[in-house]
Amino acid sequence: MRKTNKKGPIQTATKGDLVQIHKVILTPEQRPEGLPESTKAVPYEAWIKGFLLDEKAKVGDTVRIETFIGRELSGTLVEVNPIYDHNFGKPRQELLRIGMEVKKQIKREGKPSHE
């Protein structure tokens, strides 16, 4: 799921690096009753970014971070220099011609289209 940079994912971090940590907040057993089955079957998890406070760490280590507001949190190091990888998506045929279609329709002003 995670993207990597050109050289593959960075596995180690030193103090001050931007990292992402992972925490299991509640195991499936600790989750409340009444959840949909697919939700109750999995843990409740969190990811938070911040600057590494430990001198050195590698992915999978339990580490401490300083968040963007200066709070100290701990968790499992999952990514070093995490990137935002959401994008503009692929061009969509379903959308591309909409503008041209309606412009034609407006030109035939007043007449309903019966294509």
């Binding site: 907040i25 509640l26 989750r31 409340p32 959840l35 939700t39 999995v42 843990p43 409740y44 998890e45 969190a46 990811w47 938070i48 970014k49 911040g50 968040t67 963007f68 507001i69 709070r71």
Partner: peptide, 19 residues
């Protein structure tokens, strides 16, 4: 994060309120 917030990215569930 661009505005300087600490963001907790969580999985699906009403336990958001617990956090």
């Amino acid at each position: 994060e661009a505005y300087g917030a600490e963001v907790w990215q969580l999985t699906v569930g009403p336990e958001l309120f617990y956090i």
